[in-house]
Nucleic acid binder design. Sequence first.
RNA 1: GGCGGCGUACCCAAGUGGCUAAGGGAGAGGUCUGCAAAACCUUUAUGCAGCGGUUCAAAUCCGCUCGCCGCCUCCA
Length: 485
Amino acid sequence: MKIYNTLSGGKEEFVPITPRKVKIYACGVTVYDHCHIGHARSAIVFDIIRKYLKYKGFDVTYVRNFTDIDDKIIKKAQQEGVTWDVVARKYTEEYYRDMDMLGVGRADVEPKATDYIPEMISIVQELINKGYAYESDGSVYFSVSKFHAYGKLSKRDMDEMQAGARVEVDERKDNPLDFALWKKSKEGEPFWESPWGLGRPGWHIECTAMSIRHLGETFDMHGGGADLLFPHHENEIAQSEAYTGKPFAKYWVHNGFITIKKEKMSKSLGNFFMIKEVLDKFDPEVVRFFLLSTHYRSPIEFSDEELREAESSIDRYYTTAVRMDDFLSQKGDGQNQLSDAGKMFEKLLLSFRDKFQEAMDDDFNTALAVGHIFEVIREANRFLDTKPSGAKTAELLLNTAKLLSEFGNVLNIFGRTPREWNLSLMKIKKIGISEEGIYEKIRERQEARLRKDWKSADSIRKEFEEIGIILEDKKDRTDWKVKVG
RNA sequence: GGCGGCGUACCCAAGUGGCUAAGGGAGAGGUCUGCAAAACCUUUAUGCAGCGGUUCAAAUCCGCUCGCCGCCUCCA
């Protein structure tokens, strides 16, 4: 399989350091505020990458950290008149709530920066000993000029960056590009004891400490949002490789941004949607599906309209699932031959696992994979339209359902029953009728239909339509579903 | 200024050298249906921002132009 590596700027054949094992470190969130949908994208992307690698048979160790001490947390704590750890705890809990609602799985290890202070201090000390870092007025800085490969990830030239002069000049630094490994704490700020006095870790050093501790000095994949590329990941590489003398992460994977009206969603622009407010209007599966319908490296435009389209797509799956379930719950008539249409469908079906994997093997092309899934769905519907029957057909449709759920498992979609999907839609769209109430009305309408009282039957259906429920008359019953899109 | 990306139908989107340019949504027509819905079929890009070039062959490679965006400062 091929993965795009930011370090090389191209797709590379994926070869794990240890055969069949993959070690992934993804940068998580700084717990100082609510999570927005951009955080969700990153979490979902790496969740799917991890799932697919497992599906392919790799033994995956996935680490995703929390930054629970930094300037923003301290600022927030001061604003709210609480201590930093209260803020960190509050937003960590909120992060978990959001992720649970979204259906994003936990990482195997979810370390917090402040649990690794001794490790960080010892790395910083070693960097000083090796001459890569220097102490200045109680803080410690990494000397960028000592690490000659600096800029290799973000493809930056140190001289040009200095010419850019957008870096804050700090008297205590030898070079404006040097970054803090350890920061002296000011009066009233949280602190830990260190050889350089009271202070706290710089932003980047935590990832070095935690990834090395849990994954080793060199590991397979390091990821995060594209905005972490510089300076965060560049600095991580510098301090980690200077410290160990070994290559840090082999593959660097960065997800693209979510945009609103073509602009990057960000806190500073104020154009962001919190995860919980999106989930107030859309089912979590819709959000996940939407994010997977565009390649993870591309920007993705976020809007209600796009989400409604995603909702319609998912509904198409569940509608087809009902048709397949209906067939499977029927008794076969003993006919044990597949029709010509069945044979053609069977042949086609057999090719789809390869197609799905081929798509995912190509830098996790979920958009293409989803396209293939909908081809299966169309073909399944087409086959069902031929009104097939028999045990062989049942077997074929069972295999179809299994295949779709196999793919769905990897992408974390299609995991529910059609009924669960519709009940969830009812809740989200705030349709004020119970499932019982629906069936009662359906029975009433059924009686009218038997009397051929089409007027009454149609008026009941009209009532349903007005509250957002669609009735489907079938051979032996009437089904209901929530109107989507 | 430096570095990077994008521009594919009405909308979203895959495709990065070679069969009829995936898939979803929307629209129109049809089949089915008491009528619907769903499903299926047909239809909506002789063309992939524009111009030029390389090639037997390009949406796909190269050059230029136009438009949009990102990073270079905390940021998923």
